[in-house]
């Protein structure tokens, strides 16, 4: 099918199979390997993207479902000069990255949270990250990164 959608703020039209998984479309056809696949069945959140400003799982969607949609992946967060997004910077500063496999999904979830709630409390952060598994860090540094990112976005920090 001919598929038209917006990918990281750029309009795109391509030819694909309608039942192509969105994760495969992104990683294999478009070379956007930031979005990861781990469990492949919606349990881990590694493939988290945003579809029309809502977090979704690219492993449980097919191409036909994103016709006309606006898709955001981890690659779309950096600014035009490739400067890291404040949430990405916070993950680096807090040391919230170990093997890195869950990081894109975590960053997408924190970014989504901070757009809805700029100054979240700990419970809100934990709930926002409840669909994302990390097997390395024990989550505390990821919590720290989310809190640091909130401070950055609220301009409390340089």
């Amino acid at each position: 099918m001919k598929l038209s959608f917006t990918l990281n703020h750029n309009a795109l039209t391509l030819e694909t199979e309608p039942d192509r998984r969105v994760i495969d479309l992104l990683r294999e056809d478009l070379g956007l390997t930031g979005t990861k696949e781990a469990c492949g069945e919606g349990e881990c959140g590694a493939c988290t993207i945003r579809v029309n400003k809502e977090l979704r799982l690219a492993c449980l969607m097919i191409a036909a479902q994103i016709e006309g949609c606006s898709i955001e992946t981890i690659e779309g967060l950096a600014g035009p000069d490739q400067a890291l997004h404040p949430v990405q910077e916070a993950f680096v500063q807090a040391g919230a990255v170990q093997c890195g496999f869950c990081t894109p999904g975590m960053v997408m979830a924190v970014t989504d949270l901070l757009e809805a709630i700029p100054d979240p409390d700990e419970t809100q952060i934990r709930k926002a990250l409840s669909g994302n598994l990390c097997r390395c860090t024990g989550y505390q540094k990821i919590m720290d990164a989310a809190q640091l990112a909130a401070k950055k976005e609220n301009k409390c920090l340089p």
């Binding site: 039942d19 069945e41 919606g42 449980l60 097919i62 036909a64 479902q65």
Partner: peptide, 27 residues
């Protein structure tokens, strides 16, 4: 019929269901 896909695609991946056609509600 494909609605949210959160169960259907998991069942398809595990080969519990192998539909020939999916009716997608998104449009």
């Amino acid at each position: 019929i494909l609605a949210g896909g959160t169960d259907l695609f998991v069942h398809m991946r595990n080969k519990k269901i192998q539909p020939q056609t999916l009716v997608c509600l998104d449009q």
